[in-house]
């Protein structure tokens, strides 16, 4: 998997999910969705593969996901059935504070 850089866009190999990297430490890490490494968004569809049952909570559009050590944060830009993980540890959904509408 290519390096996760801020602004980079990746898609799941096993579901419809897509993410954009919001913040990354620059270290080489493998981000999985549904238990399988994600691929760059422009890549052609991959054959076969299924969402692993331990990685099947899903991701929701517009939600942000973060590793426990906060070194990687991504935004879900397309919903999918697979969950995100690094080294088998599921990313956590980041709570965002609702702000007053200003514009």
């Amino acid at each position: 998997m290519p390096t996760l850089k801020t602004g980079g866009r990746f898609k799941s190999a096993v579901c419809a999910g897509e993410i954009m990297v919001v913040a990354a430490s620059g270290d080489d890490v493998e981000l999985t969705c549904g238990g399988v490494a994600m691929v760059e968004a422009g890549t052609d569809a991959l054959a076969g593969g299924e969402v692993h049952p331990d990685h099947a909570v899903g991701i929701a559009m517009g939600k942000r996901y973060i590793t426990a050590d906060e070194t990687l944060e991504v935004l879900c830009v397309k919903a999918g059935d697979g969950s995100l993980a690094v080294k088998g540890d599921l990313l956590l959904q980041k709570d965002t504070k609702q702000l007053p509408k200003t514009d």
């Binding site: 602004g7 517009g62 609702q98 702000l99």
Partner: peptide, 17 residues
């Protein structure tokens, strides 16, 4: 730049809220 505008939106607006 795109990073400035997108950062502003992501930090201040909840998607589909």
């Amino acid at each position: 730049r795109h990073k400035h505008l997108v950062s502003y939106i992501l930090s201040s607006v909840e998607f589909a809220s």
